[in-house]
């Protein structure tokens, strides 16, 4: 692994965004979670190199920051696909057969929960109740919530062959 010059492993834009958070925090490491999210926003995930640079910038140990990063399920410490598919597996969606939907998606993509397709396009993850239980079952991709899912809708969203899953995560 190449020896990183610690601070320069963070881009100017990342540093500027992190500084904005630090400006209203009582001390630097108080923004640890915001800073991890900022790095992830630019890079998709948080690598060891970013984590060390960030810890250094926030004046905390890399071990402590690692403890924080791994606590939160939406901070990714491994590379994820272009699109992260979050399928709600909580109770109201379960009642409406979310497990079938999940199996259907897993089959279409050829991966299980927690895995990424070999082409790096999709990662499939379970997620806690998305606060849309009246539209169960639901899944989320990027900022887009897909509601009232059923077998047909999944077929359409994941129509294999062509540019699969183009619609996923975008406005219909």
């Amino acid at each position: 692994m190449k020896q990183a010059n610690l601070i320069s492993a963070l881009s100017d834009r990342e540093l500027a965004d992190i500084d904005k958070e630090i400006a209203h925090a009582p001390y630097r490491c108080a923004v640890a979670i915001d800073a991890l999210k900022i790095v992830q926003q630019y890079r998709g995930w948080v690598s060891d190199e970013s984590l060390r640079a960030l810890a250094n910038y926030l004046e905390m140990s890399a071990e402590e920051l690692e403890g924080i990063a791994t606590f939160y399920n939406l901070i990714f410490r491994k590379p994820v696909g272009e699109k992260v598919i979050l399928v709600c597996d909580s109770v109201s969606c379960w009642i409406k057969d979310s497990d079938k939907i999940t199996r259907q998606i897993a089959e279409k993509l050829g991966i299980g929960l927690g895995e990424t397709t070999p082409d790096g396009q999709y990662t499939l993850l379970p997620v806690t109740c998305l606060g849309a239980c009246d539209c169960a079952p639901v899944l989320m991709v990027g900022e887009k919530l897909h509601k009232n899912l059923d077998g047909d809708k999944i077929d359409k969203l994941f129509s294999a062959g062509d540019s699969a899953v183009v619609k996923l995560g975008e406005e219909p």
Binding site: S90, V91, S92, T128, C129, G131, A132, C133, D134
Partner: peptide, 10 residues
């Protein structure tokens, strides 16, 4: 808001 089955604060 993450309590399973809760969708009001949203």
């Amino acid at each position: 808001e993450m309590e399973p089955g809760t969708f009001k604060d949203r």
